[in-house]
Write a protein that binds this DNA or RNA. Structure first.
Lengths: 247, 247
DNA sequence: TGAGGAGCTGAGATGGTGCTGAGAGTTCGC
DNA sequence: GCGAACTCTCAGCACCATCTCAGCTCCTCA
């Protein structure tokens, strides 16, 4: 494997985020060590594992920002590890590494949920590029923190909502609707999307439920001064009004 | 390059979505042709480009679900194309392909916004795996890209349309027509194609419906200043006027 | 020049979509 | 048990999107 370490000027501090934590899984100690050094030099926090069960144990904690996963592993193949992780609902981005070209081909299914594929021998630079692409994406879609859409403020940790600084008390359903709309603003969400997201997959509720709760939500928002924030897109669904929330 | 075509049982119909549209950019006609055939066999809709400027012109419309972009290109390097696209706000996933290992290394910055990296020679299966990973992600996130055909802007997430910056409010049918035409511009779409795409397969509607709604659409567009944007190709169907929208 | 076909459009009917109020059922704390 | 908050159901209403259709214009071709 070619290893050419070239530390970037600003490895990962651009967006003020923390060191990304990367799990490196490979059965060869030499490879682990080389990758560990190389990635550390790029400002990442690296943890290594040498076999499948260990990898799974580490990865299922969800404590990593990305996993570099070799397919050939003692104990449990990389495929199985990935499969198991996805089955458990772990969404951590995974880069699959195969020792030879044909290996990926032999998988029963290609769509196991990996986020990138590398074939040995790969250059460190290519690995780094893939890794960064994956980390960049993960960073771009944060699932936590406070949403700020103009004058609207949705604190997801506290499940509280403010408009122009004044708090708006919402019921769980109302809050769910608003958070869903805010987290994707200014996209239009269909009633069915909102149903599955807030009411769950059981589909016990009907679309009229969404209409009713949009009504409740609107009333409370209007009382707080956010009149017209939730807009109806006839025939499709609802969205947060860009102009209003953004202004 | 190794080409091993293996049509899947269900290429891409799993989630009932449309064929993914992929833009293949490579300066070698042989490679273009091979990729075109291979990807079509996998159920994808493929458009090819042989040089940088052409690639940029196609890609900046936002009408593709993924771009396979060779770095070595006449006219404008793949890097520049990618850089330009990102600068314009085009978020379409891009897989960068380098002819040799060192090429990626030579880029001034790795973080141009590519979503995957491949080094020639790569096997078709690896390409397919990367491509699918990218498409799967794109499909999972409802934030579909914005179509830009000259002065026309179609935001597919917000279902909003702008001409020269001024918003145009459209009914669902009208919007469907415009999006269909914009996503394939400057191709001519027949009335039957538009019928099946917007009205569905039931075929309850007739071709006159398309004519009527093209009329409605034209009226609203004309009111916004986009007079003559939707062109009739007698005997065939409708298309967006490149010259007008592109100028 | 005229016939036929393709495409356009205005008027009007209708059905669907979305909104709302009333009220019943449920859960939870006291 | 009681009240409060939340959730859900339902029916009625208003309005808009959709559809139908006839009559029109325009193009093509003989």
């Amino acid at each position: 494997m070619v290893l050419r370490v070239r530390p970037s000027a600003a490895p990962f501090g651009d967006s003020g985020c923390m060191q990304p934590r990367v799990l490196v899984v490979d059965d060869e100690p030499g490879v682990r060590k080389a990758l560990d050094r190389g990635l550390r030099a790029e400002g990442m926090d690296v943890v290594t594992a040498g076999d499948g069960p260990t990898a799974l144990r580490f990865a299922r904690t969800g404590a990593f920002d990305a996993v570099l996963l070799d397919i050939m592993l003692p104990g449990l193949s990389g495929y199985r590890v990935l499969q198991q992780l996805r089955a458990e609902g772990v969404r951590t981005p995974v880069l699959l590494v195969s020792a030879k070209d044909g290996e990926i081909d032999q998988a029963d299914g290609l769509d196991l949920g990996a986020d990138g594929y590398l074939v040995k021998p790969f250059s460190f630079v290519v690995l780094l590029a893939q890794l960064r692409a994956v980390l960049r994406r993960a960073e771009a879609s944060p699932t936590r923190g406070t949403l700020r859409i103009g004058r609207l403020e949705v604190d997801r940790a506290a499940r509280s909502v403010r408009w122009d600084g004044t708090p708006v008390t919402l019921s769980p359903r109302e809050y769910g609707l608003l958070e869903a709309l805010a987290s994707r603003a200014p996209a239009v969400l269909t009633k069915d999307e909102l149903l599955t997201e807030i009411w769950g997959d059981e589909q016990a509720a009907t679309r009229n439920n969404v209409e009713v709760y949009i009504g409740y939500l609107r009333r409370k928002l209007a009382a707080a001064g956010a009149d017209g924030l939730v807009r109806t897109v006839r025939g499709h669904g609802y969205q947060l009004d860009e102009a209003l929330s953004g202004g």
